[in-house]
């Protein structure tokens, strides 16, 4: 199952070139980043339950994110990860932190390239 398939499942496909705004129901394909120079931040959680809690929190807050299968390039787990546009970091990470739902690890994806992404704000 591709990341795009997971995105299609729960989100309306974003139109290329438009920023993700307003709600978790918007979304974009992680394997075809929008043409705005941003990467995507992939948040990997310790447990399946934790990601469901995070998903619920972000949905209730109307925050922009999509769920994707955990990229095998960075983590061998078989569940889901939260993907957000880099520019939405300050909307989403503080909300997760306030709820005690910080991810176990995070990665910045640009195209097929992944790099560790610091969660302490230095990214």
């Amino acid at each position: 199952m591709s990341a795009g398939a997971a995105a299609r499942r729960t989100r309306t496909a974003a139109r290329p070139g438009l920023p993700l705004t307003g709600t978790g129901k918007a979304g974009g394909r992680q394997d075809s980043p929008l043409n705005d120079g941003q990467g995507d931040i992939i948040l990997v959680f310790a447990s399946n339950t934790r990601i469901l809690e995070a998903e619920e929190l972000l949905e209730e807050g109307g925050l922009p994110f999509i769920l994707v299968p955990v990229p095998k390039e960075v983590n061998p787990n078989c569940g889901l990860a939260i993907s957000l546009r880099e520019g939405d970091r300050d909307l989403i990470l503080p909300a997760l932190a306030d709820a005690g739902l910080m991810p176990q690890s995070a990665y910045l994806r640009r195209g097929d390239e992944f790099a560790g992404y610091p969660l302490d704000g230095s990214g």
């Binding site: 199952m1 997971a6 499942r9 729960t10 299968p69 078989c78 569940g79 889901l80």
Partner: peptide, 13 residues
Amino acid sequence: PGRSGHAAAHAAS
């Protein structure tokens, strides 16, 4: 639940 990334698995989760 919690075993795959597709829609049905997520619904089960």
